[in-house]
Design a protein around this nucleic acid. Sequence first.
DNA 1: ACCCATCTAGGACGAATGTCCTAGGCGCCT
DNA 2: AGGCGCCTAGGACATTCGTCCTAGATGGGT
Lengths: 202, 202
Amino acid sequence: MGAIETRRQIVEAADRLFYERGFEATSFADIAAEVKLSRGNFYYHFKTKDEILRAVIALRLRNTEAALEAWENEAGAAEERIRRFIHILIMNRSKIMAYGCPTGTLSNELAKLEHIAKDEAVEIFSLFRDWLGRQFAALGRKADADALALHVLMRSQGVATLAAAFREEDFIRREVADMNAWLDAQTPGRAARPRPVSRGAA
Amino acid sequence: MGAIETRRQIVEAADRLFYERGFEATSFADIAAEVKLSRGNFYYHFKTKDEILRAVIALRLRNTEAALEAWENEAGAAEERIRRFIHILIMNRSKIMAYGCPTGTLSNELAKLEHIAKDEAVEIFSLFRDWLGRQFAALGRKADADALALHVLMRSQGVATLAAAFREEDFIRREVADMNAWLDAQTPGRAARPRPVSRGAA
DNA sequence: ACCCATCTAGGACGAATGTCCTAGGCGCCT
DNA sequence: AGGCGCCTAGGACATTCGTCCTAGATGGGT
């Protein structure tokens, strides 16, 4: 098997394990076992644990960039793109209820560890922040586009954290509906397209 | 020194270290050093790490209960009490920007570890949830009191997570203002009391 | 057929971890 | 003063961690 393919498998396994168990709680041996490699062989591909972490973050950055770019091409209007983002909460609800948000939990953990790669993890957030900001600017909210972007990100993080704590799927659906209703209210110039009823405010 | 006092100091140190470094990343030796105890003596007070965790969670539960009860007695109306809760984000902004929310980050970590005490940590959330629910019920929102409570909790968690990631104090203040504005809109029956201007929606 | 670069396996290494044992010192009781 | 129970110190223990070394398997190019 080529080294490149092996390396890819390692990073992929580490990505999942870091998400499901956390960075510190995942050992070299765990990842090696997952890919069915000896720990020694493992060392051939990655010298240190930090190196794997960097590779995982780089992978997530690439995946995030690709997803955002795909939404940029697929979805029509900026508003529809933002709804795509919001909809992740529903699509990934099972994993979110089990492990929270991959970006948020990693960023939290690295912050506590005062890990050098902390800022790189936050960079994933920045990708979403900037992308969302551009969508809000396209919606005619240029002045407060960044604040609106952070607001959407904030809600996603809050929903993910509480969903992981209480494991209530209804809560996720309710908050997603509320986010969509909120988004409707952010573009008063446009006619609000029909949406499923959002009971009350939350 | 009495064993009770020593035990109190241990739990207090563990509480802080679990918050600042995380549960797994904090070792027996770390806590012992903080309280200036030998690791052997430490064992006299706590047999296992889980035992300390349980004690820390119990402490946080007691502290939370006490804080909520104090707000119940001090603050006048239910609305004012909810604002007290929201205001924690501003009061604790330095620690939140450094380490996130103690409850949210611990709950996230324990969930990933599939730790037995996970549900006990979530119980801290439940205290806030129930308390907030009672306030909303007192505000005349009996039907969706729990949903509103979760909504407030959700926002707090989101703000804490992003504040820890980006370390922007303005973001916290902006979102707190937005939460207050949102709260105003939840009690349409009452006259909205004058509040500092919340620029736009977010 | 042979060689050399690429890849792999297995184990060694010190440090740190959670856990546990034992010997001793301190202070309150009678 | 003496004894006893509470508290402490220091280290042993097995395990696991991240890291590192070395010998061998593999396979394409000559």
